[in-house]
Amino acid sequence: MTNHPNGKTEGMPPLARLLSGFDKPRNVTRLFYLLLAVCIALGLADFLYHKHGYFAVEEFPAIYGLFGFVAYAAVIFLAKGLRLIIRRPEDYYEPFAIDTEDERAAGSDPEATGGKPHA
């Protein structure tokens, strides 16, 4: 989670302070390896019990994991391809489109945003 690290924790709610180390690159990397480890463990777990599947293909060890990984990547890449086709500037449907309007009109807290009072 690559972004400007923010070490300052004052002014944050106590719960947030608890979580505040989260976006340090070191911790992010640790988290990644933890996830990898859990995944490998889950894959190996398939050898430890008798699987009850509906289809023959389910019998293959760790098939769900592999399928999940591949399907996820496929979704992302297909979506990236799709974006090439369908992406348009935000003012495409102008005038009278909500995409470029001030979103605070939907009823934001006027103090918190420092914005004008809206409906």
Binding site: C39, L42, D46, G53, E58, A62, Y64, G65
Partner: peptide, 18 residues
Amino acid sequence: THVVTQLQLLLFAGLAFA
């Protein structure tokens, strides 16, 4: 079976995201 396969599916997908 169900719990393990579901976790596999989700966590591996999460791995892909990472």
